[in-house]
Design a protein around this nucleic acid. Structure first.
Length: 888
RNA sequence: GGGCGGGUAGCUCAGUUGGGAGAGCAUCGGCCUUACAAGCCGAGGGUCACAGGUUCAAGCCCUGUUCCGCCCACCA
């Protein structure tokens, strides 16, 4: 197989499709169960069925795929569990919109038909997101794909519900909850987004009965006053200690309501008098329960004023607000209105203003569950990476309030509770009961509410593995190794999985939680449709290829920092993919199907060096990946592939490959080249699965899929080894070559012009290396001749000088040297040295440094000073000679 | 109101036990050198937000200031 098989530039698209099909057909993503091997598992954060791939998914899935592919190469049996979330409200909204376009509504269809319509929608569109994940290269075990509403998961949900109910951890009651009038459902506290809004603070006088005088209260929601059942003041507020009356007359409603005392009231705010609306404000609700106040609901579930709002009945809540204000003004009871910025709750799905409302709902008592979840992190059984999120997690867990889990929508897990028509008894059970357990009545009404979507997601790590059955998969893969997620769902999802996992599995759901950043636009703004700054990952893939895109995401994934996505960077990594591609083309030109192993006897310096560098790279990359430092791993590989393997090794290998060093050297170099390239592909594979698989199949040493290969660290032979001697020697060679190139660049000498160089060596080591590596230096510095003179002070005429450690190189430029230019070049070098020397000298002249700094540090600085001084001296001598020559 | 993250080259960002400031892109100069012009070789460019402090030594640790971003919160 030769280079002709590879296109001149890498073209990702057909390659990607081909290999993805290949992987799927050959079941390379399948997790073995049961298995003897060490296991590694990840459950995917299930994307919403309504979802289309965005940057957040792309990052999330790429990082998981990197981990999974890496662990497979390390020999683990890997399960990456895929699936989707039914996303109750979001999906219901989408399907309702579709129905609306078709001129109907869910109410017209009725519950059963509507749910059928949602399932149908899911059949049609639900796989879109899955196909998009596949384009990213996601190596999920697709045969195990789950859905939060499938039979198995529904059974898990029901089991958990019944269990928690029987334990008293699920209860039902009338409480104040967040109500979205548009979605017509209760929301949990988390599902409410607070937004700062410019509003008004209305100061209203509530007169004492029969008087014009009264108490002034302030509110931002005047329409709620219709449901006021008290006015509260602080018990120690001197202004109100000796009030003659105990009541005020609620304006507009003409209801006499008590003045009560409660420490909740802030004396500093306004007049220190607080109107109390137990049915429409969470704090007022608490106060109301403390003082046994009536709870009057004046806003209904559609945001319309109720019967109890008197003559305002039937008005929309915001229309009513205006009407109330107008009437108060007319009656002279509106004292004043001031502008105020305040937080207003909005529905996280539809953005409508949320109304605190009194309602009968189901709740989970979370305190006991949270305690275990806190302990699990404190004890280190679950590790959160990066650590900055630990405190956020604790904070939330410590202040957690009961979780409202019932939703008044249709799409979701219907709550398994039945009420007896006859006696009103409530039954919670796995299977539909036929008669009332209390009175034997046979008319049982099933609860119409469904569960919060996050209730089923909370069970994801074990429900997807077959729980409540005891399955081999659970046995082998639970607890999962790593959860990879964004911080935006730390509370929604991660915290709740911790609670449920610990409660039902008696074991943490994951050992590590890796919390990644948010992807923003290149200016750091959140991507949003309204801003028009959304970058579609699929477009990026189309334009630059999946591998380049994935590499960019990995390279940007620094811990604790948001990712600013710019296409420019993706372009840069496309170049990197192409660089690898061309390196492979070059290698294949020379490999010609040879499968000879590396022959140790004929290793040249560059061979030893590149093997050592490969070993170092492998160690650092695996260390970085083990610590979730994806960006570091990506940077290390980039540097090795481009700036070591391509820039130095391939160039150094050319003479041997082209046959000018004899057959043994040629064979050996081919073997090293093949091995290093193959191992490099393995290291790169987790990041860029497609191009590495493509090249892999062209290489002579390789067999089958790269996914089945072994990480270099984990195999007996042939491993790359650390080789300090080779690295040190190569450093001398590289310095010499760079020195000549520098002269060439600064003096504008064409690369085509071969140069003559004389080296004056000053120490034995350097002398030996340069002596032995003459050919290599000549090759890479493009020299005609290289003469070596140990010691001495002779200096060729008309030469430019490059000073390196242990040697001075004279580049003959007889006839073409521009002395002026050379003088400037030397002066520049000397200037740089002087700066560095000044810093070093300062340290070494400091007694405290000499006495207090650790000896190795002092030694290092001293050595550096010596080195700089020698260089400086040599350069100064040279400069003096140039000046003489210039004059002469 | 509380908490968190950030301010490093023109731009986007790395920099984990405190000990010689880095990458990509952009800029400048030289090259079609037989893998790659999506390339090669070289160069320029930074009082690491500001002010103090700890230390022999601070981009890194501590305090304060300032600007930007985010999260949480039941002051109407």
């Amino acid at each position: 197989m030769g280079a002709n098989d590879l296109a001149k530039g890498y073209e990702p698209h057909q390659v990607e499709e081909k290999w993805y099909r290949f992987w799927e057909t050959n079941k390379l993503f399948a997790a073995a169960s049961p298995t003897d091997k060490p296991t590694y598992s990840i459950v995917i954060p299930p994307p919403n069925v309504t979802g289309v791939l965005h940057m957040g998914h792309a990052l999330n899935v790429t990082l998981q795929d990197i981990l999974c592919r890496y662990r497979r190469l390390r020999g683990d049996s890997v399960l990456w569990m895929p699936g989707t979330d039914h996303a109750g409200i979001a999906t219901q909204n989408v399907v309702e919109k579709k129905l609306s376009a078709e001129g109907t509504t869910r109410h017209a269809l009725g519950r059963d038909k509507f749910i059928d319509a949602v399932w149908q929608w899911r059949e049609e569109y639900g796989s879109a997101i899955i196909n998009q994940l596949k384009r990213l290269g996601a190596s999920c075990d697709w045969d195990r794909e789950r859905f939060t509403m499938d039979d198995g998961l529904s059974r898990a949900v029901r089991t958990v519900f019944v269990h928690l109910y029987k334990e008293g951890l699920i209860y039902r009651g009338n409480y104040i909850i967040n109500w979205c009038p548009r979605c017509s459902t209760a929301l949990s506290d988390l599902e409410v987004e607070h937004e700062e809004i410019d509003g008004h603070l209305y100061h209203i006088r509530y007169p004492f009965v029969g008087q014009t005088d009264g108490l002034v209260v302030a509110t931002t929601r005047p329409e709620t006053m219709l449901g006021d059942t008290a006015v509260a003041v602080h018990p120690e507020d001197e202004r109100y200690l000796n009030l003659a009356v105990q009541t005020v007359l609620l304006p507009l409603m003409q209801r006499e309501i008590p003045i009560i005392k409660d420490t909740y009231v802030d004396r500093e705010f306004g007049t220190g008098a607080l109107k109390v609306t137990p049915a429409h404000d969470p704090n007022d609700f608490e106060i109301g329960r403390r003082h046994q106040l009536p709870e009057i609901k004046v806003i209904d579930d559609n945001g319309v004023m109720t019967e109890d709002a008197g003559r305002f009945k039937g008005l929309d809540r915001f229309v009513c607000r205006k009407a109330v204000v107008k009437e108060l003004e007319q009656q002279g009871l509106l004292v004043r209105v001031e502008p105020i910025k305040h937080g207003v709750g909005h529905c996280y799905r539809c953005k409508d203003v949320v109304e605190p409302n009194l309602s009968k709902q189901w709740f989970v008592k979370v305190k006991p569950l949270a305690e275990k979840a806190i302990e699990a992190v404190e004890s280190g059984r679950t590790r959160i990476v990066p650590e900055v999120w630990i405190n956020t997690y604790y904070d939330w867990m410590h202040n957690i309030r009961d979780w409202c889990i019932s939703r008044q929508i249709w799409w979701g897990h219907r709550i398994p509770a039945w009420t007896c028509d006859a006696c009103g008894d409530v039954m919670v059970a796995m299977e539909t009961p036929t008669r009332c357990g209390k009175c034997g009545g046979e008319h049982l009404e099933r609860e119409t509410d469904v569960l919060d979507t996050w209730f089923s997601s909370a069970l994801w790590p074990f429900s997807t593995m077959g729980w409540p059955e005891k399955t081999p998969v659970l046995d082998a893969y639970y607890p999962t190794a790593t959860l990879v997620t964004g911080f935006d769902i730390l509370f929604f999802w991660v915290a709740r999985m911790m609670m449920m996992g610990l409660h039902f599995m008696a074991e943490v759901p994951f050992k590590d939680v890796y919390v990644h950043a948010l992807v923003r636009d290149e200016h750091g703004k959140k991507m949003s449709k309204s801003k028009g700054n959304v970058i579609d990952p699929l477009n990026v893939i189309d334009e630059y290829g999946t591998d380049a895109f994935r590499y960019t995401l990995a390279a940007f994934a620094a811990q604790g920092r948001d990712i600013k996505m710019s296409e420019k960077r993706v372009e840069g990594y496309r170049h990197f993919v192409n660089k690898l591609w061309n390196a492979a083309r070059f290698a294949l030109m020379h490999l010609d199907g040879d499968k000879a192993p590396i022959a140790g006897d004929h290793l040249a310096l560059a061979d030893r060096w590149v093997l050592s560098r490969l070993n170092q790279t492998m160690t650092s990359v695996s260390g970085a990946l083990d610590g979730y430092r994806f960006n570091e791993a990506a940077a290390i590989l980039y540097k090795f592939v481009w700036h070591e393997f391509c820039d130095w090794y391939l160039e150094a290998a050319k003479p041997a490959l082209y046959g000018s060093e004899g057959d043994d050297r040629k064979a050996c170099t081919k073997a090293v080249l093949a091995q290093v390239l193959a191992d490099t592909l393995i290291l790169l594979h987790p990041f860029m699965p497609f191009v590495t698989e493509e090249i892999w199949h062209k290489l002579p040493l390789t067999d089958g899929s790269i996914m089945r290969s072994t990480y270099p660290a984990d195999r007996e032979y042939p491993p790359a080894r650390p080789d300090d001697e080779a690295e040190n020697a190569m450093a001398v060679v590289m310095a010499a070559i760079t020195g000549v190139r520098n002269v060439r660049g600064e003096m504008n000498i064409a690369p085509a012009m071969a140069l003559d160089v004389t080296v004056q060596t000053e120490d034995e080591k350097a002398a030996q290396v340069i002596e032995q590596q003459q050919a290599l230096i000549k090759q890479l510095a493009r020299l005609n001749t290289l003469a070596i003179q140990p010691g001495g002070n002779r200096r060729p005429q008309g030469a430019a000088t490059a000073v390196i450690q242990g040697a001075t190189l004279f580049v003959s430029l007889e006839g073409i040297i521009d002395f002026d230019q050379e003088r400037k070049r030397l002066e520049k070098e000397i200037g740089k040295l002087a700066k560095e020397l000044a810093g070093v000298n300062k340290k070494l002249n400091n007694e405290d440094f000499l006495s207090k700094a650790p000896a190795p540090v002092v030694e290092k600085v001293k050595a550096r000073q010596a080195d700089l001084l020698t260089k400086q001296k040599k350069l100064e001598n040279t400069l003096a000679m140039v000046q003489t020559a210039e004059k002469g």
